[in-house]
């Protein structure tokens, strides 16, 4: 990635300013992993996620959810949020760990409408339930499917 120096003037917050604000607001529950040009990595607790997203949207100007993806780490599930900001020109990656025996997390679809179908897809593929989601149903696979294909214990039949 090429570092661009000229665009910092019209940005609302720089990466470091965002990290400082998040650290000040959430002293525990959110840890910042790494900062790169236009990229921030963070980890959040399951309980702190919705509050963090509210703060990001309301105060820091993150207007856009790029993606919500599930990951099966065998002993735990992860939900990875990529939230980007047009005014700050930066992409924030939030990783949330979820235990496999209770795959539930707060939905962020009430904040950003764009997250709606991403969460439905994650439910369809991993079986992770999103609380307060307007419509938690399968999206790609037929309604009567009884498996969650992207889990690691689901093997492809010709392999």
């Amino acid at each position: 990635m090429v570092e661009e120096s000229g665009d910092s003037s019209d940005r609302k917050f720089s990466e470091n300013a965002i990290v400082d604000l998040v650290r000040g607001k959430f002293p525990e529950g959110v840890t910042i992993g790494g900062i790169g040009p236009r990229r921030i990595n963070a980890r959040a607790d399951r309980a702190a996620l919705y509050k963090l997203c509210e703060f990001l949207k309301g105060d820091l100007g993150f207007e856009h959810v790029s993606s919500v993806s599930g990951v099966d780490r065998v002993d735990l599930f992860q939900v990875v949020y990529h939230i980007s900001s047009y005014s700050n020109r930066c992409l924030l990656e939030i990783t949330v760990d979820i235990p496999t025996d209770d795959p539930e997390i707060d939905s962020i679809a009430p904040l950003w409408g764009g997250a709606d179908w991403h969460e439905r897809e994650t439910y369809d593929m991993f079986g992770i339930k999103f609380r307060n989601h307007p419509r938690m149903e399968r999206i790609f696979l037929p309604e009567d499917t009884h498996y969650f294909p992207f889990r690691k214990d689901f093997k492809l039949w010709r392999r």
């Binding site: 993606s67 179908w117 897809e121």
Partner: peptide, 14 residues
């Protein structure tokens, strides 16, 4: 794991 974010997937939801 390889996750793809498709632009039209989200545009259709709108």
């Amino acid at each position: 794991r390889l996750k793809v974010r498709s632009p039209i997937f989200v545009s259709v939801s709108a």
